Computed example of a mutant assay.
Amino acid sequence: MKTIGLIGGMSWESTANYYQLINQGIKQRLGGLHSAKLVLVSVDFAEIEALQHQGNWQKTAEILSNAAKSLELAGADFFLICTNTMHKVASQVENAVTIPLLHIADATGSQLISNKLNKVGLLGTKFTMQQDFYKDRLHSNFSIDVLVPSHIEQDFVHDVIYQELCLGKVKEQSRKQYLEIINCLSRRGAQGIILGCTEIGLLIEKSHTQSILYDTTLIHAQAAVLESLKK
């Protein structure tokens, strides 16, 4: 079994889900008392969040690169950045080490292609919804068209992530408005909805909507399990 490296803490609530999902996946496949071999470096999200909103992505890349180096020194065979937004600096972080990065958009794109989808809606932080680092990777590598909400809806989705979900707050009213946004994306032709922030799965579940949801935390964790068991 390969050792999985996790860069977490962005936020710790979703990182805890990664840990649980990966270990559940290993147990399901190997049975008995098996659990995942992994190492975790958890950063201070308050520092990362401030730098994000300052536009200081270079500094965030340095912080995550140092975390990746620590994972490599600890014996990780590959690593994950346990957040969608920080994949904006994925190439810089990957270039800082010799072990490979399991990219969250690639894991998601592979799942979408296996389900024969070519147009999806995307919910996430404004950085993920507005900038090209995530959408372009899905389009270039998987020929998937990505729809995003209106600017007003993006503001709401973003604020709920940072002001509620990252603080462990799950509000019914926010869920209702998220579901309205999901329905709008579906009416615009989205065949499925990417929950493109690792916290959104805390708010929206499959039972809440008829739209097909793609929870990137679950998809990324499952991909990590499969990679760890490759020989």
Rank of each mutant, 00 (worst) to 15 (best):
A224H: 11
Y162W: 08
Q163M: 10
A74S: 12
L80I: 13
G109E: 11
E164R: 03
K230G: 00
R29F: 00
I7A: 07
H139M: 10
N17D: 15
E227L: 10
L123T: 08
V170P: 04
R137D: 06
I113R: 15
I182V: 15
S174Y: 12
A46M: 07
E205D: 12
I104V: 14
Y134F: 15
Q222I: 02
V43A: 06
N23Y: 07
V89C: 03
I144M: 08
L226R: 13
K126I: 10
A96N: 02
K169A: 05
L117V: 12
Y134K: 07
S42I: 04
C184N: 15
N95P: 03
V160T: 12
L229V: 11
A221Q: 00
K171A: 13
D44C: 05
G124M: 06
S174D: 01
G31H: 10
N118S: 15
G9M: 07
L30M: 12
H139L: 15
F142Y: 15
S150I: 09
L117R: 14
V225C: 04
T209N: 11
L102G: 00
Q54S: 13
I63N: 04
A105S: 15
Q210E: 11
D132W: 05
D132E: 14
K2P: 02
K69H: 10
I182T: 06
V120H: 07
E227I: 03
H53Q: 12
I182M: 09
S140F: 06
L51T: 10
L165N: 09
K169G: 00
L117E: 06
K135R: 15
I144P: 02
C82I: 00
D44K: 14
H208W: 04
S150H: 11
S70M: 12
I200A: 08
E164S: 05
